[in-house]
Design a protein around this nucleic acid. Structure first.
Lengths: 191, 191
DNA sequence: TTTTATTGATTGACGCGTCAATAAAAAGAC
DNA sequence: GTCTTTTTATTGACGCGTCAATCAATAAAA
């Protein structure tokens, strides 16, 4: 009983199932069969709509980045001062959703695959460029070297996230506190 | 023509071949067959000496960490002042050998697998603990908060490495410079 | 003759992607 | 308003390749 206009629904279901399956497995060692099963369809249909496994994964990673971006813009919207903008960026980077198993697994494999797959690499640089741009803008009035400090803070956020996400006792708060402390140090002279 | 005492030789050859193959592929998507071929033996022999693929990879990652550690202790040996020790740790973390394709690939997959494989996770925390310990010791006399600053610097180093290693134009120098700048900031008050 | 070294061949499983077939909705023909 | 055709949806089955791991067999050293 083919209902028309299923394509967007199926695609969304597959992306969601992919993220869920990545979270359950903790890695990208997930088969198309598992994903299709969770999404309630056959493997053939998954291939029909996406063309291949790689494209399914790419869509899933893109979705995760889009979700993260939504969280960022929402947090930035509530911030009025430069300082609040910087804090919002940090808070978004260490939001609970970033520590969901699926998100962590996706990020780690994003890193691992960035070295080989150019499309994956493009997704990663997109994220990094946006974060740097946002941080630079936030620091424009409260740092003596917005560019350099933004680069430093961006790398620090990634490093802290890496450690917190991989630690068994997900120490979200400690990581966020460390990032905020660094922000204090950076802006200390102008505050 | 079985020569005796081949086991350590074969194991070393397999580990070396694994690292080389990871570098060539840029990821852990490497088969036992490829590794064995590069090491000049049959897949059966590789299994005979290591028992399984996972153990071969684990041995290779352990070797990479051991190589890194050797580089660290050598750099630390040449350093006499606390400041020089901190600089040596940073220099070792951004040494050219850390940017060899094989090393980058191994690190990224180490991160990716740490979420699932406990043994891999143990290797990672071993590295992190050592780096933090070394940094804390180096900062003991030149920072007002050696513990906190060591944690921050460690995360910063990881984050900077992550970005530099995955950038097409491997910007080693810039990353190292950023880390040294952060060291300046941290020790500024006591210098 | 026992232990160590070594491999070709094989097995068993798994997974991606394809294809033919089925079914129903939409669009066009008359 | 029926009949036909095309488009969209959907799946079971399967081919083809890959790969990890095993085994039986061979050969030399102890």
């Amino acid at each position: 009983m083919p209902k028309l206009g299923m394509e967007p629904i199926r695609r969304a279901a597959l992306v969601e199932a992919t993220i869920a399956e990545i979270g359950a497995a903790g890695s990208l060692d997930v088969t198309v069969g598992q994903i299709a099963k969770r999404a309630g369809m056959s493997t053939a249909l998954a291939h029909h709509y996406f063309g291949g496994k790689h494209q399914i994964f790419l869509a899933a990673m893109g979705q995760i980045l889009r979700d993260f971006r939504a969280e960022v813009v929402e947090a930035l919207g509530k911030a009025s001062t430069p300082r609040a903008r910087a804090e919002a960026l940090i808070a978004a980077s260490f939001a609970p959703s970033c520590f969901a198993p699926a998100t962590v697994g996706a990020w780690m494999t994003l890193y691992a695959h960035a070295t080989t797959h150019p499309e994956t690499h493009r997704l990663l640089v997109l994220y990094q460029r946006r974060l740097r741009s946002n941080l630079t803008h936030a620091l424009r009035r409260i740092s003596t070297d917005p560019r350099g400090d933004a680069e430093m803070l961006g790398a620090l956020i990634d490093g802290l996230y890496l450690r917190a996400a991989l630690a068994k006792d997900a120490s979200r708060d400690a990581a966020m506190a460390a990032a905020l402390r660094a922000l204090d140090t950076v802006t200390g002279a102008l505050q």
